[in-house]
């Protein structure tokens, strides 16, 4: 979706403001929110792209006004309600009103932590040959899916060069809809800054994105 989350190239957000000696969490609740999100995703109730889409669906004014972990919290509440894992009335009441459902993988316990601290593997075998090879010029397609996609707006319609081939990976546009992994070839595509931002842009800059084969077309 063409949402507020797709921020590459927007103006007006000001300077980047690094915080010296920044703590891992600024408030205790931030760590609890991160851990609850990990635990509930591990229960098999949703996948990583459904989780990302959950944040993209926050209204733009809420997205911009919320801290990072507040977005995670709002997403978690929304996804739990959407999947009938808790009731909106329970959120409002701040307490349990009815017993829980049976989760796919049961209660999340200490024994399950190891599994969520390790990143998943998204590489998959693929039946077809890759359409492009390193050095090929390709155009990022001018597509605007209404649901989750990982092709940022700022490259759409622009021509770049295939830099690397990563093998076939789980295709977010499919798995987010619960339509299966539909593995697709994944490429790194590099764009000249002036191709993306016009002739006034710094000619020494190149921007590379990872793009799935259905995002690309031959030039």
């Amino acid at each position: 979706m063409d949402g507020i989350h797709d921020m590459g190239g927007m103006d007006g957000f000001g300077k980047v403001d690094p915080e010296p000696n920044e703590p891992v969490f600024h408030e205790d609740w931030e760590g609890r929110v991160l851990a609850m999100n990990s635990a509930m995703r591990a229960s098999g109730s949703w996948n990583i792209d459904m989780g990302r889409y959950g944040i993209e669906l926050l209204p733009p004014h809420v997205y911009l006004a919320s801290s990072y972990y507040k977005r995670w919290f709002l997403r978690l509440e929304h996804m739990l309600i959407q999947r009938d894992l808790i009731g909106a009335d329970e959120i409002a009441a701040g307490r349990l009103l009815r017993p829980g459902m049976i989760l796919n993988h049961g209660t999340f316990t200490v024994a399950d932590v190891e599994g969520v601290l390790r990143r998943g593997s998204f590489g998959r075998p693929t039946p077809a040959a890759a359409r492009f090879k390193p050095g090929d010029r390709v155009r990022a397609r001018n597509i605007h899916p209404r649901t989750h996609t990982r092709l940022p707006r700022y490259v759409r319609g622009h021509v770049g060069v295939i830099e690397r081939l990563h093998g076939a990976h789980v295709f977010p546009d499919s798995t987010v809809l619960g339509k299966g992994e539909d593995p697709q070839w994944l490429y790194t595509v590099c764009f000249d800054s002036q191709e993306l931002w016009g002739t006034d842009a710094d000619p020494t800059v190149k921007v590379c994105v990872d793009a799935f084969e259905p995002y690309l077309e031959q030039v």
């Binding site: 851990a35 959120i91 829980g100 999340f108």
Partner: peptide
């Protein structure tokens, strides 16, 4: 936020979805 997050954690615990000790280990 602290109160809202604690309330949600309590609900998830009472539902049997999570063991809070596992959250401690992640943090």
């Amino acid at each position: 936020m602290q109160l809202r997050v604690r309330a949600l954690e309590n609900i998830l615990t009472q539902k049997g979805y999570i063991d809070p000790a596992a959250l401690d280990v992640i943090v």
